[in-house]
């Protein structure tokens, strides 16, 4: 802990922010800068590592250690750092192209290992930095520069993917909702191991309005299904009920409050969180937000380092001379 409490200003670097005006990244950055002081972690022990894409400029704007690496590979670099330096708090900043296209392999493996990483995926459902091609989260049929007749790919659901990859903490928030995003960041920071957060982020240039249904004051109340542990899952108009092994969206007026699914973020069965993740349709008429899954599993770094500590406790620390002279040896007089 630092002696003097840090402020948002302390986490703001001297770099000029260079995102397009109106980009959702601004509010995420501002929320992060305001949130970091409450962690009570010295700036030098925080590291932001990003890949390539608009969102990956993020580390430049934070007065912490940071690395803007190469496309899709941030989780690999962050894993090496987090495993070898368990004293650090390591964040990965990535986007839908960076994390789910070129870097898909690293994302799923970091999650299954449960490396101590907080992974923030800014999902704008478009390639922004390369000026507007469809991304792995773009809805099918999307007209873009590279798909003038409409995209043919079925998109990824990042939440489903993360749950399928054995992630222990999976959440979703929205760029413009600072309060909600801060709560999710807080929970992610408290989680031991990998935390995966999908953040809906508007790209005003190449995919403007992609998340209007969950941002406009007129529609968001109905669209956002709030997931709060121990509370019924519902929006202003709709709620969830059990239907067999699955979940069903119903109008609140058609059921009583006691019929609604009470959210259990700690449910060990991933099929529950997976069922929740399937509720978001690509037109985003109903979208669960909050923490889908938050279960305890030892972090990878702690397993690696405990294994080493146990071996040293049992066998003693290694001695180089002994090692070099091990096995069959002979002496030439």
């Amino acid at each position: 802990m630092t002696d003097v409490a840090l402020t948002k200003k302390d986490f703001t670097s001297d770099q000029e922010v260079r995102w397009c005006p109106g980009c959702g990244d601004y509010s995420i950055l501002s929320t992060m800068q305001a949130f970091l002081p409450e962690l009570g972690i010295p700036r030098e022990n925080i590291v932001f590592i990003s890949g390539i894409g608009c969102s990956s400029r993020f580390p430049y704007y934070l007065e912490t250690f940071g690395m803007h690496s190469i496309h899709g590979r941030a989780p690999t670099i962050a894993s090496g750092l987090a495993i070898s330096r368990p004293d650090l708090s390591v964040f990965v900043i990535t986007g839908d192209g960076d994390a789910l296209s070129i870097g898909g392999n690293h994302l799923i493996h970091s999650l299954r290992r449960n490396v101590e990483l907080k992974i923030l995926l800014f999902n704008n459902r478009i390639y922004g930095l390369t000026k507007g091609q469809y991304s792995p989260t773009s809805e099918q049929g999307k007209i873009t520069k590279s798909t003038p007749a409409g995209s043919l790919d079925t998109p990824f659901n990042p939440i489903s993917l993360a749950i399928g990859a054995e992630a222990t903490f999976v959440a979703r928030s929205v760029d413009s909702d600072r309060k909600h995003l801060t709560e999710v960041l807080r929970a992610a920071a408290a989680h031991k191991g990998s935390a995966f957060i999908e953040i809906f982020q508007n790209c005003p240039i190449f995919n403007d309005g992609a998340f209007d249904s969950v941002k406009d004051s007129e529609t968001k109340g109905a669209a956002l299904l709030q997931m709060v542990h121990g509370q019924p899952i519902k929006s202003e108009t709709h709620g969830l009920v059990h239907e067999g092994a699955s979940l069903k969206l119903v109008e609140l007026s058609s059921v009583s409050e006691s019929d609604l699914v009470v959210h259990d973020a700690h449910n060990p069965d991933p099929s529950y969180a997976f069922a929740l993740s399937r509720l978001s349709s690509s037109e985003l008429s109903h979208v669960p937000v909050g923490i889908f899954r938050d279960v305890a599993r030892p972090s990878y770094g702690s397993l690696v380092n405990n294994q080493i500590d146990e071996i040293i406790a049992k066998q003693g620390a290694g001695d180089l001379s002994t090692l070099l002279s091990s096995g069959d040896t002979w002496v030439v007089e």
Binding site: I49, M67, S69, R73, P75, T76, I77, A78, S79, G80, L81, A82, I83, S84, R85, L88, N105, H106, H109
Partner: peptide, 14 residues
């Protein structure tokens, strides 16, 4: 790629 990425990350950490 992850193999060398992790090595570089560890190097960055000393």
């Amino acid at each position: 790629i992850a193999a060398i990425g992790s090595a570089l990350g560890a190097s960055y950490g000393g």
